[in-house]
Amino acid sequence: MTRITALPTDLVRALQDGGPDAHGQIPERTVSDGGSNPCRHCLQYIPEGAGMLILAHRPFPEAQPYAETGPIFLCAGHCARHQGEAVPEVLERAPDYLIKGYSAGHRIIYGTGIVIPQAEMMARAEAIFADERVNYIHIRSSRNNCYQARIDRE
């Protein structure tokens, strides 16, 4: 059994309250155009006219060769963290995603990465978790490589 895991609330609150991003910069504050600005905390699209943050995020505990850093969006105001087993809104629109497994040491497990149709993503995640070396899976944009969320075992 697997679940989609959003960014931790304590990390998001620090950023929403003006804390520095992965590059040590204060997140940019702007207004959503209502397009495709997915918040990585509530895992919903940020509504048109709502405040949002643009920042650099490294979804790893420390810098190391496999610790990719890239841009993400967050709601500027406090939002509720995504909970539950349903595929969240932000993962329903794209036709496919890049998923890849990581070890407990936060290193890519080679052979697990694949661009896969959205409808097949969670079943493929279950298959990737059959490899005992895999501790968690990242979901990334297949077109821009932006971090979306992670998949964990339940």
Results as ranks from 00 to 15, higher is better:
residue 65 P to L: 13
residue 16 Q to S: 03
residue 92 E to G: 14
residue 58 R to I: 06
residue 126 E to W: 09
residue 145 N to G: 13
residue 140 R to K: 10
residue 44 Q to E: 11
residue 126 E to S: 15
residue 95 P to H: 15
residue 69 T to I: 13
residue 53 L to W: 00
residue 111 G to T: 04
residue 135 N to W: 09
residue 1 M to I: 15
residue 73 F to S: 02
residue 13 R to E: 14
residue 137 I to T: 01
residue 95 P to C: 11
residue 49 G to R: 05
residue 114 I to L: 12
residue 88 P to S: 09
residue 47 P to H: 09
residue 125 A to K: 01
residue 92 E to T: 13
residue 60 F to Q: 06
residue 45 Y to N: 03
residue 67 A to Q: 07
residue 16 Q to H: 05
residue 114 I to P: 02
residue 124 R to S: 09
residue 106 H to P: 11
residue 71 P to M: 14
residue 134 V to Q: 01
residue 18 G to A: 10
residue 31 V to I: 13
residue 45 Y to D: 01
residue 66 Y to T: 12
residue 51 G to R: 00
residue 86 A to T: 13
residue 92 E to C: 14
residue 9 T to N: 09
residue 35 G to L: 08
residue 49 G to Y: 09
residue 4 I to N: 00
residue 130 A to D: 12
residue 58 R to G: 02
residue 19 G to A: 07
residue 24 G to T: 05
residue 82 H to D: 04
residue 13 R to K: 15
residue 148 Q to W: 10
residue 124 R to M: 09
residue 20 P to S: 12
residue 107 R to I: 07
residue 117 P to M: 07
residue 114 I to K: 11
residue 132 E to R: 14
residue 51 G to D: 01
residue 37 N to I: 03
residue 14 A to D: 10
residue 44 Q to Y: 10
residue 23 H to K: 13
residue 137 I to C: 00
residue 65 P to A: 14
residue 69 T to L: 13
residue 84 G to L: 08
residue 3 R to W: 08
residue 108 I to D: 08
residue 81 R to D: 04
residue 119 A to D: 10
residue 11 L to N: 07
residue 91 L to D: 06
residue 5 T to A: 14
residue 45 Y to T: 01
